[in-house]
């Protein structure tokens, strides 16, 4: 015999599973979103496993030393020469079969792309989370408080909007040197103002809703109302924006790298790899095409997921 308590607990579990099923159903309903999710998950898995699939030392074992390029034999055609091999070419003396060809350094391009995915994803996550948290906090307070504070914050964001984002990031990176941290900071600098505007607009409309009045009548403090209720109701567009921005930031970050702000020229990073192939665009186009394609696919996937997230997360749309 089941006790009453157990029955209730089982009921709760069933409800939760049903809820999860419904979530999955919403996701599955839209094939594009499904594709986006699968691609995203694939890249995330690839990022997590990259160091197992490919020996990370390969990327850094190379370097110009005494007039000679020293490469792991396994990944290049012949020591001393940079030879770009096209996709699908196998080298007789060994297991080498370059699915995507080799890059300008003679390294296996596929291996380098795999190694660069965690770099790009990690940077995108760091940049977007800092920008989103900062922008959301400031925008939420500005929208809720209103008045002079709101006005001041808006004018500050206007200043940032007035500059072309990439140029500002370039200037910042040029001023403070080419380290990973500077690059991240440079992109954060141009990435937070849209969050301020987005959340501020949401909060402005949300704070006039009757339930806020009800909460005030309940004796809830402003801090509680803002951070627990109003913000929670306005956060969904932000989550969607974050997902979409992950793709955008990867593009911007790679663009900076492509323009030569990479901390090290041999660093495996999509923009860096593409920049590497820029000089050989006619004789070895694959060096530029494949990293570029991967960038495209990743950012597209994040955009598709962002689309789907909106439908799945917002309880107001789940009916």
């Amino acid at each position: 015999m089941q006790s009453r308590e157990e029955k209730v607990r089982k009921g709760e579990w069933e409800a939760r599973i049903a809820d999860l099923k419904y979530t999955l159903h919403l996701f599955r309903k839209n094939p594009l979103v499904m594709i986006g999710t699968i691609i995203t998950l694939f890249f995330v898995a690839l990022a997590l496993l990259s160091n197992i699939i490919v020996d990370p030392n390969l990327a850094y074992a190379s370097g110009y030393e005494g007039g000679m390029y020293r490469f792991d034999r396994k990944y290049m055609w012949s020591a001393g020469h940079i030879i770009n091999w096209g996709p699908g070419i196998s080298i007789y003396s060994g297991p080498e079969f370059f699915y995507l060809g080799t890059d300008g350094w003679g390294r296996d391009l596929l291996a380098m792309i795999i190694l660069s995915i965690p770099v790009d994803l990690y940077n995108a996550v760091v940049i977007v989370s800092i920008a989103a948290v900062f922008g959301t906090l400031i925008g939420a307070i500005a929208g809720y408080v209103g008045g002079i504070f709101d006005e001041a914050i808006l004018r500050i964001t206007d200043i940032f909007f007035a500059f072309p984002g990439l140029v500002l990031a370039l200037v910042f990176a040029a001023m403070f040197g080419r380290t990973m941290e500077t690059l991240q900071l440079a992109i954060v600098l141009v990435w937070w103002p849209p969050y301020v505007r987005l959340i501020r607009g949401q909060i402005l409309s949300e704070k006039e809703k009757p339930y806020v009045e009800a909460l005030r009548a309940l004796g809830a403090s402003h801090i509680r109302i803002l951070f627990r209720h109003v913000l929670l109701n306005s956060i969904f567009p932000i989550l969607v924006q974050i997902t979409m921005d992950l793709g955008g930031v990867i593009l911007t970050f790679s663009a900076l790298m492509f323009l030569g702000f990479s901390p090290s020229p041999s660093m495996p990073e999509l923009g860096n790899l593409a920049a590497d192939g820029y000089g050989h665009i006619f004789d070895a186009p694959w060096v530029m095409i494949f990293p570029g394609l991967v960038m495209l696919v990743i950012s597209l996937a994040f955009n598709l997921v962002g689309d789907g997230l909106r439908d799945v997360l917002d309880p107001r749309l789940r009916r």
Partner: peptide, 16 residues
């Protein structure tokens, strides 16, 4: 002091 308002549709927080 407790108050209950007119329209129950809008006076509850929709996401909690």
């Amino acid at each position: 002091i407790a108050i209950v308002f007119q329209d129950p549709m809008t006076f509850l927080n929709p996401v909690l």
